[in-house]
Simulated assay, not measured.
Amino acid sequence: MLFKSLVILAAASSVLAAPLMERQSNASTCTDPDLRRAWHTLKDSEKKAYIDAELCLMSKPAAHGLRGARTLFDEMQSVHVLQSEIAHWVGQFFPFHRLYLRAHEYLLQTECGYEGAHPYWAEHLDAGAFSNATIFSAENGFGGNGVGDLLCVEDGPFANYTNPLGPGYKVSDHCIERRFADRVSRGSSAAVVEACMAKTNFLEFWNCVEMTSHGAGHGGVGAQMTNPISSPGDPIFYMHHAWLDRIWAKWQEEDPSVRMTEMGGNNRPRLGMAMPGAGGNPFGSGPPTPGLGSMEDMIRPDDVPAPAIIGDPGNVTTLNHLITMYGILPNRTISEVMNTKGSYLCYEYD
């Protein structure tokens, strides 16, 4: 209860303390957007194409020298590890993960020949029953729940992958770990999403989604996905965040003249936020488990420098804030990723 209260208090103070960034144009030059579709609507051949491309990233050597990474898949995870403390409970939460998803999609397409757009997991259809979700099929999905003391995923396409990053900042070999929590996954329900969609400004909307559906998706999958630092080691991470990006995009479309340029919030989490070293975990709670790790794993070590805030003079997130992708994609300002059908990005959701 104390943890929950601290999170709610901190989120509320963020809303009150962070003014909105001045309006700025983001003219669209996207005339033929890619269509990002729900996983359950894809043909089996389309699902296989996506899974094969992800397996390809897991087989290709790392190319950017990022800490602990052996493959391109690991390097995507490392981008998140290196910036996790400025990617959650901050104003760039949505923009950062939008560009991060595009970086993942870009690698799938350019390195592994994937011809589709990035799919998403329509989590509201599985809320309260992640353990029975078809996306976790061993035949044409991401494999099922973890088993044994180590909670290793032992079926499906990713059963044999050795992930060298995590838990947290730790560099250590381990399997992909899951521990479904159906009760926690209820926070992904359509009713919860609708309540967030009803928010009328960015700060309220962002806090609502991050505190509910975001955490429910991570916590509902469990284990590795509950770690706020190294969670992209489970490939379901990208499907979850594509769903969250869809929610944001649909919210923006309801009032585009305002919401395509509406930004605010803090650049670093406020006191009491559940971040590494702050005594909590934003994606779940309970004793250390494989994937989640211990609090020691959550404290940034000396060989991971504090991520820099570039483009904002203070602690208020603006459209000039620069999002860093460590060479996988060119760095972009938040302004450049506000519109999924703008001058840089070119996709839409079904």
Rank of each mutant, 00 (worst) to 15 (best):
Y347V: 02
R186P: 06
D34I: 00
P228C: 08
L35W: 03
A242D: 00
G277L: 00
M225T: 07
S84L: 06
T29F: 07
Y169I: 09
S28P: 01
L42D: 03
R70S: 06
I309N: 15
A103P: 03
V15N: 11
P288S: 13
P157D: 01
A27W: 02
H240G: 02
L203R: 03
G277S: 04
V79A: 13
Y238C: 05
Q109C: 09
T29Y: 06
M275P: 05
L125H: 05
W251E: 00
I309R: 15
H174G: 09
D32K: 15
M239I: 00
A103S: 11
T340H: 11
N160P: 01
I334A: 12
E254M: 05
H104F: 15
G156I: 01
E115P: 01
F94Y: 08
P232Q: 05
L151V: 03
G279R: 14
F73Q: 09
A198W: 02
L345M: 08
K48Q: 05
A127M: 08
V81I: 12
S28D: 03
A191I: 04
V316P: 01
G65I: 03
Y100Q: 08
N207T: 15
G219T: 07
S213M: 14
L107K: 08
M263F: 13
G219M: 08
A62C: 04
F142C: 02
A195E: 07
M275T: 11
G291K: 07
L203K: 06
D74T: 08
G141C: 01
D234H: 04
P33S: 13
Y344M: 03
T110I: 04
F283M: 10
V81S: 00
G233W: 01
V304E: 10
Y161A: 10
T226E: 15
E75Y: 12
C346S: 10
G342D: 12
G144A: 06
C112N: 00
G293E: 12
S231F: 15
E177Q: 11
H218E: 15
L125W: 07
P290Q: 03
W243R: 14
V209E: 12
A12P: 09
S137M: 01
Q252I: 02
T200Q: 14
V15H: 04
P61G: 05
S189M: 07
P256T: 05
S5A: 14
R37W: 04
C152Q: 06
L20N: 07
G342W: 02
P61C: 12
L292G: 14
I86S: 10
I328T: 11
R259W: 01
R102I: 06
T261L: 01
M225P: 01
V304H: 12
L165R: 03
R300Y: 07
L99V: 09
Q83E: 15
K47S: 00
W89V: 14
K199S: 13
P290H: 03
F237Y: 05
F3H: 14
K48Y: 02
V90G: 08
E154A: 10
M225F: 08
F237I: 09
P301D: 04
E254Q: 04
V316F: 02
M275F: 10
K43F: 00
F93D: 15
R36Q: 07
N320Y: 06
